[in-house]
Every structure is written in structure tokens, then in C-alpha cells.
Design a protein around this nucleic acid. Sequence first.
DNA 1: TTTGTAATTGGGAATGATTCGCATTTGCAC
DNA 2: GTGCAAATGCGAATCATTCCCAATTACAAA
Lengths: 145, 145
Amino acid sequence: MGAKKNYNDILKNRNLKVTKHRYAILESLEKSKLPVSAESLYIELKKKGISISLSTVYRSLEALYKKGIVIKSILPDYNKAVFEYNHNEHRHHMICIKCHKMQPVTGCPLEEYEKLIESKFNFTVKGHNLEVYGYCDGCESKTED
Amino acid sequence: MGAKKNYNDILKNRNLKVTKHRYAILESLEKSKLPVSAESLYIELKKKGISISLSTVYRSLEALYKKGIVIKSILPDYNKAVFEYNHNEHRHHMICIKCHKMQPVTGCPLEEYEKLIESKFNFTVKGHNLEVYGYCDGCESKTED
DNA sequence: TTTGTAATTGGGAATGATTCGCATTTGCAC
DNA sequence: GTGCAAATGCGAATCATTCCCAATTACAAA
């Protein structure tokens, strides 16, 4: 991706003030391969020596989510929200039913579908959420039910 | 679908005991056009004169969900789980960002995509979750941010 | 650079959905 | 009908998330 990302501009463009916390959060999220919970992000930031409170992590993530800078999702078997940097490359995830690991998948088959919905239901599509569930490589052969 | 559904068989086939509560829950869910929260289902059952505790509603819904009889989902802006009868006809939903109304859409564009993921990642697909976000007919023209 | 003000933050308390513990009841196989 | 595991009720506990409010900070304008 070439040079260092300019989080300052990303924040300013959306009317969010630039703070060291938000900067650190964006940096962390962008580096992370997998979506993270507010709490694990909090712990990670603490480990890096950043002084921050859990409330701030929640508030920042929510603000970033509202602005579309990060993606938020909640899995039905893991009752907390996870966040990831919105790369705008439209990735979806494979989620393992056993170990809850989320792996990104690029490529999205939904453009046509969205158009269909718009014209059929008079619904203005702004986005979508797609997750594929199953057993990951490691959990494949274990028992179930 | 013609005659009255036999919830007894559905439950027995999945090793769940048949109780009047589960029966009533399935009946309610199947009739409902929209996904409902545990609490609103609880209130609805009470109104019908059924004596049940909220814990039982939660426990039953969870059991039904684990067996694939109902579908559970959690929306990132409405932080509680909603449940719907699994009609096995694979419907997805349009969710309004403003009023949170969920409307079902039949038709699913994902068969090919799942095959692709299976072969590419050695991931055994068991299902998926797709929700389309946007503004519904009624909320269409209101302001945003 | 300094100042004013609204946005942000810390930290702890409050909230609210969901789960748990345990005594009681119920479904159902035998 | 009996026995036992599963299901239930009800209240307490849990846990993620939000809220409150005083202190701090970002940054626009002077």
C-alpha cells in the first residue's frame, strides 16, 4: 500500500477530531488481519504502553463505525461486537462454528442482487453484511451436535 | 403449506422434548412475518395467556437455534438478538438503518460463492448470513449524516 | 501564540440483555 | 405407573456496553 496511511485526513474528513487514541486505534485495526473486540483492542493498546480507558475504546469504535471507517459485526454465538478496519475492498468472512475464527475472503457476488432489491422493493441499499459459516481447516473433522 | 405443521415431529426429530412452551414458541415464530426478540416474544406469549418465564423463552430459543429450527441474528445497531422461524427457503432480509424494520427477501445469490470458498480455503460451509442495509420505503427521504 | 469552546476522555457506576443455580415439575421410555 | 433426565420458574449473577460528570484536549479564531 505504499506510504504510511494518513489517519489524520480520514478523521478530519469525517468531522472527527484527531486524537492520539483514535490514531492508535486505527493503526491497530488496520494492521490486524482479523476483526477484534473492543476489549481485546483495549488490552492490545495497553500492552503497547498507550494509556487509554475502555470507555474511550468503545466510544471511539462506535464513532468510527458510525462514520463508516470501521466495520462492526456481532456473531450469534459469540455475543460481543467485533470491529475491523474498513478497507473498502469489500471483504466478507468465513467464520468457524467451532473455534470462532474469522478469516477474510475477498470478492463479493452481490452487486446484481442489490440492484434487484432496489428496483423490486423501493429500498435504498447502503450496504450489506455477509458471513459464511462452517468448519475451518483445523476444526474440520471434529464431532458436532 | 397445506395442513397444520407438526411441531411435535420437528422437535422429536432433533431430540428435543415436546413441551407446550416450545410448541407455542414455534407457532408464534412461524406466524410472525418479522424476526422477534426474546422479550417481545415473551410479551406476546403472555398476552395469549400462556404462562412462561423469560428464562424459558431464552433457553428455548437457544435450543431451537442450536438445532437449526430457528435463525438467530444480532444487528450492530440494535444490540439484541432476534429470532425467526427457519423456513428453509433461504430468505434474507433488508434492514432499515433508520427504523430497524426487517423485511424478508427470497432468493439467494450465493450457491456459487460457497462452492468457491470451499474449494479455495478448505473450509466446510454450513450456512451463511446475509443482510442488506439501507433505507426502507418510509424512511427513504429523511436526513442523514 | 494565546484563548475560548465544544469535543473527547477517565473512571466508575448504571444499564440491559442474557445466562446461571437450584429446587420443582414435566415428558416420555420402559 | 415409575424413574430419571430434561425442562422450567424465578431470582440472582454475569458481562458487554453505555452513561455520567468533572477534567482534559483539539483546534478555530483572534
